[in-house]
Amino acid sequence: MAHVRKEGNTWYYYIDLGRDQNGKRMIKKKRGFKSEKEAKKALTEIMYEIDKGTYVEPSSLLFRDFLNQWLDHKEKIKKLKGTSLFQLRTLTRTHISPALGHIKLSDLNQLHIQSFLNESIDKGLSDVTVQRFYTMINDALKYAVKFGLLSKNVCDFIERPSIEKKQMNFWNVDEVKQFLSVAKDERNYIVFHLALTTGMRQCEILGLTWDNVDLKKGLIYVRQQLLRNTKKFSTLKTKASNRNIAISDETIAILKSHKKRIAEERLMSDSNYTEMNLVCPTSNGTPYLTGNITKIFKRLIKKAGVKEIRFHDCRHTFASLLLQHQNTNPKIVAEILGHSNVRTTLDTYSHLLPNMQQETVKQFGNMLFGN
């Protein structure tokens, strides 16, 4: 038996589902509908779910508590990499939970999520971050459906946010030389030198330890990274990220000089020095905060009088110099950068390829027809 009734200024629906296995009558009742039509629509939907056997009893679990359970599941069962889990927990704590955490999991709808995504865009958050919000919420709700906490995933009714491809910034050879010339007297010069001569990510540079540097063979073994603004190391995201990078004689000499300087600082320091065997530590042995590196980087850019770029653009600069000026095979560039697939490299730097093709054709012509 089911019906819709008016109660004061609102409407409600009532369903009698008979008795359960213990003989207790099962009643479903929901109030607060603004119109009879709205209440009937909700009643029809729930009756349809009951007939199909897909009805799920609404849970009082708050979305923030559910997200924490989901993240625990990702950590224990899915064995998510440390850095990825750290990022998910950070985004949940700083953005998603404050906006949506107070809503019951069973009450969360597409309007809530779409409004959150729109507000995130209005705040100026990047396209990548907003898309990551959507992906996280979508994956979490898929988990809720799988384990019977929800009957449907409302993200199925929301369009995945798109990412606008932004113009890539990088330095030319003269700008790199000018910046390195100005930065060479900085204590943390090695951070910027490695970024521009190896293409390593900032987290990989700040997490690099001396046992992963072979000065005799001229190799850096990229095996771990530093979690952002922490003293914790993490394994890398993909197999390809674990790579060996050959370094030049100049870089070997700079690393040797830097290692000697660190050893002298350690001897001269008091008991506050923290030994973490880092290649790029602060003066007391601890890892640099990424924000501090960014401040130093911006200061040096201004001093050098070169075009302003992000620290991550040092990686793009390194790749562009290999592709444009050295005509390096994209497959080799992919291996050095730690890309899982050469297609990633080609997609990222496709704007450089026409110039490379022109130079290649010119050299080929010279080979066959040149004097």
Rank of each mutant, 00 (worst) to 15 (best):
S234V: 14
A263Y: 07
S271H: 07
R261M: 12
T198I: 03
R261F: 08
G207Q: 09
I262K: 11
T209H: 14
T274K: 15
I205E: 00
F233E: 06
L226K: 12
N229S: 05
V213C: 10
D249L: 11
T290H: 10
K295M: 12
E250L: 10
V222F: 03
T230G: 01
T238L: 04
Y288A: 06
N244Y: 01
F297G: 02
E308G: 03
W210S: 15
L278D: 12
L226H: 05
L236Y: 08
I252Y: 05
N212A: 06
Y288L: 09
S248Q: 12
W210K: 15
N277S: 15
K216H: 09
M268S: 14
R266T: 07
A195E: 07
V279Y: 02
I296Y: 05
T290A: 10
L255Q: 10
E265W: 09
C280T: 06
K239L: 08
L219W: 04
P287I: 12
T294K: 06
N292H: 11
I254H: 08
L236H: 10
F297R: 03
H258S: 11
L215Q: 02
L255W: 08
Y221A: 13
I296G: 06
M200V: 02
E250S: 14
A246M: 12
L255N: 07
V279K: 12
G285R: 12
I245C: 08
Q202F: 00
S241V: 06
M200N: 10
R201Q: 00
T197W: 06
T286K: 15
L215T: 01
D214H: 13
T251Q: 05
K298N: 08
L208P: 09
T251P: 04
K237L: 03
A195K: 01
D270Y: 00
T290Q: 04
K295P: 01
D211A: 10
R223C: 09
R299V: 00
E204V: 11
K232P: 05
G291P: 11
I252R: 13
H312N: 05
L278C: 14
I220G: 01
S257W: 00
K298P: 04
R299D: 03
A253Q: 09
R310T: 00
L208D: 07
A246C: 05
G285L: 08
I296R: 08
D249F: 11
K216E: 13
R266Q: 10
K216G: 11
R299I: 02
D211Q: 15
G199T: 01
N272V: 02
E204W: 09
Y273Q: 04
L208K: 14
T282M: 14
N212W: 07
N212E: 04
E275A: 13
D214C: 11
A304I: 03
I309L: 04
I296W: 03
L289W: 07
R243W: 04
S283R: 13
T294M: 07
E204M: 10
G207C: 09
R310H: 04
V222L: 08
Q224C: 13
T209N: 15
C280A: 05
K231D: 07
